[in-house]
Each structure stands twice: as structure tokens, then as C-alpha cells.
């Protein structure tokens, strides 16, 4: 953290630059989602657009954390707290991914577009037991 007057003056320029970058990348996010020649993958929204959008968001978030929240030079204890929060957040996400492979709850056929075949009864791992 810049504590001298000189250091703070320098830091202010950096903050402005990062702010501008964040503005620019917000525009990029919207363009990737809406402008046709920037629409990667299939036409319209698909997993490629989701990945790109989330990568840009992650990049922007990293900038905010490193510069605005001063994580580019912090004490070790702060990193410990930060990683702790992150690990728990990702644990929540992992749980969801894990449930996706749960054969008892979600044993019915799923279409390629992610929807269940509602016309067929859901079955358990042994192939019996209907939804109704």
C-alpha cells in the first residue's frame, strides 16, 4: 500500500487506468454477448459464450481485487482469509457438480439441451421406481 504522498499520487493514476480497463471490458462483455461477429460457438448463446463471459468477469474481478482491494501487496493473514472464503465458495459449486452425477436422484434420461425426458418415468440406479 502506498503510504507516501508520491506513492499515493502514482496509485491514483493506476486506479484511473484500472477503472478505464473495467469500463472497456464491460463493453467487451456486452459485445461478445450481442454482436454477431463476436458470437463464438453456435449462433446465439451457448457454453462457449458462457465461458468467455465468465472469463472476462473473472478478469475484471481480479483487477478489482488486486488493485482496488490492494491484494497485490497484502499481509499473509489477508490472503489466508481470502483463500478461505474462495475455497468455501468453490466447495458450494462443487457440491452442485457432484449432485449432477447422483444416479439416484437424477437417474432419468437427460437431453443434450439439458432437459429431462418428462415422458418417461424417473428410475433409480437399479432401473426401478417411477417418478409418480
Amino acid at each position: 500500500m502506498a503510504d507516501s504522498i508520491e506513492g499515493i499520487k502514482k496509485a491514483k493514476k493506476l486506479y484511473l487506468f484500472i477503472g478505464t480497463l473495467l469500463f472497456v471490458f464491460t463493453v467487451v462483455t456486452v459485445m461478445v454477448a450481442t454482436v454477431e461477429w463476436l458470437d463464438f460457438g453456435d449462433h446465439g448463446f451457448d457454453w462457449v459464450d458462457a465461458t468467455i463471459g465468465l472469463c472476462i468477469a473473472a478478469f475484471k474481478a481480479t483487477l478489482v481485487m488486486l488493485i482496488f482491494m490492494h491484494l497485490n501487496h497484502e499481509r499473509p493473514m489477508i490472503y489466508f482469509f481470502y483463500v478461505l472464503g474462495l475455497v468455501m465458495a468453490f466447495f458450494c459449486m462443487w457440491l452442485i457438480g457432484w449432485s449432477k452425477s447422483d444416479p439416484i436422484q437424477f437417474g432419468n434420461e437427460i437431453y443434450s439441451d439439458g432437459f429431462y425426458d418428462l415422458s418417461k418415468p424417473a428410475t433409480d440406479v437399479h432401473g426401478h421406481g417411477a417418478r409418480e
Partner: peptide
């Protein structure tokens, strides 16, 4: 919000 915006509005 940086995550919410693309997730809720653009995806």
C-alpha cells in the same frame, strides 16, 4: 455485480 451482470442479463 461484475459476476451478476453477465450471468443474469447476458447468459
Amino acid at each position: 455485480w461484475i459476476f451478476l451482470f453477465p450471468i443474469l442479463y447476458l447468459m
